[in-house]
């Protein structure tokens, strides 16, 4: 079941189209031990769009992102309250298989983290553990398709057996994206995927994100306002564990409603 919500916000930049909601967080609160990191966050994530999460560091962007595929379960002492749905289904329901959820909602991390294995094995990892490939030829096909979608195939096709850790930083990050794509996720979460990359590698990855939104729903945390403006269609501004403003990216950057958003995007704090 799919909700249809109007993402049109008030004002001149309202969008005419209604988009289906892929994920929806309601009153999400997160505690690390005694410390509360999120104070009731509500956010809808439209399907096949890029949603950017911005805000000063420590405001809870990564925390929220990691709620979306329950990576916070792996953090000792973390507790999540509120509910988050994927296609209308509560992902914190105890009948949910976390392993399967993480296959549907993939994640790309801040620092490229290829496994110390060959390029091929890196991409084949997910399909292998989930038994997605019928046979060797099929596995090879999945790996190649994923590398192609991540825009890396041409660069590495002659050295698939070499270690993934031997690639350049930007190539490693695209390898990690290919690795995430290989399990056919519906949503890809990216936590500052370009912060460890040089400007050229960043541009390549940004282009890639733009293409990926044809097939995937993408949520990206970014420190760079320009990046949010370039790649995203929708932006949510976090501040001190709350969302202070959310709306179409163009509007957020041209005519924000909230004073804090305005200060942040013009670089007055952050």
């Amino acid at each position: 079941m799919m909700e249809n919500v109007s993402f049109a916000s008030t004002g001149a930049h309202a969008r005419p189209v209604d988009l289906p909601v892929k994920m929806h967080g309601r009153k999400v609160e997160v505690f690390y031990g005694q410390k509360q990191a999120l104070h009731g966050v509500d956010l809808e994530i439209p399907e096949r769009q890029v949603t950017a999460l911005i805000g000063p560091s420590g405001c809870g962007k990564s925390t929220f992102l990691r709620c979306l595929n329950r990576m916070n379960d792996t953090v000792e002492g973390a507790r999540v309250v509120g509910d988050i749905t994927l296609d209308g289904e509560d992902i914190y329901n105890k009948n949910i298989d976390v392993v399967e959820l993480r296959a549907r909602v993939g994640m790309v991390f801040q620092k490229p983290n290829p496994f110390p294995k060959s390029i091929f094995e890196n991409v084949a990892y997910g399909p292998k553990i989930h038994g997605l490939a019928k046979n060797k030829a099929h596995l090879r096909e999945i790996v190649e398709t994923s590398l192609k979608r991540a825009g890396l195939f041409e660069e590495v096709k002659d050295r698939l057996d070499e270690p993934g850790t031997g690639l350049s930083g930007g190539q490693q990050q695209r390898l990690c994206i290919a690795r995430a794509i290989a399990v056919s996720p519906e949503v890809i979460l990216m936590d500052e995927p370009c912060s460890a990359l040089d400007p050229i590698a960043t541009a390549t990855v940004e282009e890639l994100i733009d293409e990926l939104k044809q097939n995937y729903t993408i949520v990206i945390v970014t420190h760079s306002m320009q990046q949010a403006a370039r790649v995203s269609q929708r932006t949510a501004m976090f501040h001190l564990g709350r969302i202070v403003e959310v709306g179409p990216t163009e509007k957020m950057f041209s005519n924000p409603d909230d004073k804090r958003t305005q200060d942040y995007i013009t670089g007055r704090f952050g």
Binding site: T74, A103, M107, F109, F115, R179
Partner: peptide
């Protein structure tokens, strides 16, 4: 980060240990 990478792809703990951590 290697653990996160594997868990984030939907591997279980023991799969992560067997296929990533121990190697």
């Amino acid at each position: 980060s290697l653990r996160d990478g594997s868990l984030g792809l939907g591997a279980t703990r023991s799969e992560t240990v067997k296929r990533v951590i121990l190697p």
